[in-house]
């Protein structure tokens, strides 16, 4: 299939997924209710009934948030795999996700004190600070050494070490936490979209747009980098500048999305591979397709997490890994010229 028609297909699929996510759930919503609530909100300003309220304030922002977060994670995967030229990379690997988990754990253990400091969005702010600090430590430790400064492999290894430190600190905190706090830490580490509201959707959409723009701006350089760092340098690419730009983009995309919804694993790893298997290989097209497919997959996963044992919700990270992994195993076993 042509690459452009694939991207159109993903776009249609994403619209369908967002629509499904709006109608499916503990309360079934009809099309008429959806139209009414949109027209009332936008035009007449009449008061919404219960179902219309569910749509406009719960389902719709949640559906959009799942799409936007999935898109951010998948673009992060494309960027980081491209930077490290390594198919095993998850976008949060250099401390971005585990740092967020550490920040969130601090919040759960001392919420009253921290809430006094940041009265608004306390949890996401703590998580984002953690994410930022961990990523900065990775890059800081790496560039403090003359030998490792110019090596992308060393940056990755430093990141894995920082990751391990953060995760063990999360372990210590949950060890000392009381039961409900420890449960909160665990569940946050598995992700949830239940907190979705319009302010979060707006913030994450903004970061997605910025991230997408920066990713596309660097796409050609990332393509050149695939030949090797020396070869990219010889093609006039400024490797250090590119590396910083990609890491900043990644923190904006992954750090902020993770801070709002928790750690959602596996999605950022598999989406780029699936797309390569479909023959989408250039970074620019990968970024666009990853945004659409990643968003669609997370949106569908969210529907599954809500309905599989309704009315209880399963953490979404469980769904992405539990359903995503077998599909991924199936895909990498198929005969395919482009799947590494």
């Amino acid at each position: 299939m042509k690459k452009n028609s694939l991207i159109i297909l993903f776009f249609l699929a994403s619209l369908l997924a967002i629509f499904l996510s709006c109608v499916v759930g503990a309360v079934h919503l009809s099309l008429a209710e959806i139209f009414n609530s949109i027209s009332k909100t936008l035009f007449s300003g009449n008061e919404l009934n219960l179902h219309e309220n569910i749509f406009i304030n719960i389902r719709f922002p949640r559906a959009l948030l799942s799409f936007v977060v999935g898109a951010s994670l998948a673009i992060g995967g494309v960027l980081m795999q491209g930077l490290f030229r390594n198919p095993l990379i998850e976008p949060g690997l250099i401390g971005t996700s585990s740092g967020a988990a550490l920040g969130a754990s601090f919040y759960f253990l001392s919420s009253n004190i921290l809430a006094a400091v940041f009265p608004y969005w306390t949890l996401p702010i703590c998580a984002f600070i953690g994410s930022l600090l961990a990523t900065l430590s990775t890059t800081g430790i790496n560039s403090s050494n003359e030998k490792s400064k110019s090596s992308t492999t060393q940056l990755l290894l430093t990141g894995i070490a920082v990751n391990a430190i953060c995760m063990s600190l999360v372990g210590i905190l949950s060890f000392f936490a009381r039961d409900p706090q420890a449960r909160s830490i665990t569940f946050w580490g598995l992700g949830s979209l239940a907190s979705a509201n319009w302010k979060i959707v707006t913030t994450c959409t903004l970061t997605l747009v910025i991230g997408c723009f920066m990713a596309i701006k660097n796409a050609k350089s990332i393509d050149a980098l695939q030949l090797g760092e020396k070869e990219a340098f010889l093609l006039g690419i400024r490797i250090k500048k590119l590396r910083i730009s990609i890491i900043v983009t990644n923190v904006i995309l992954i750090g902020i999305a993770t801070s709002f919804v928790g750690v959602i694993s596996f999605l950022g790893l598999i989406i780029p591979h699936i797309l390569r298997g479909l023959g989408i290989l250039q970074t620019k097209q990968l970024v666009l397709a990853a945004a659409l497919l990643g968003g669609t997959v997370l949106c569908l996963s969210d529907i599954v997490s809500r309905i599989i044992i309704a009315p209880t919700e399963i953490p979404i990270g469980i769904i992405t890994a539990l359903l995503g992994a077998p599909i991924f195993i199936y895909l990498i076993r198929t005969k395919n010229e482009f799947l590494a």
Binding site: A224, L227, L234
Partner: peptide, 30 residues
């Protein structure tokens, strides 16, 4: 310099699938 000099190094290692067409295009990237 990358517009007035071309350097083919030894042992180019590529990790990800990439189309031949796209590899050759990188020669005009500068």
């Amino acid at each position: 310099r990358s517009t007035i000099q071309a350097y083919l190094t030894q042992n180019i290692q590529i990790q990800f699938p990439i189309r031949v067409r796209d590899i050759i295009s990188t020669g005009r990237f500068p």
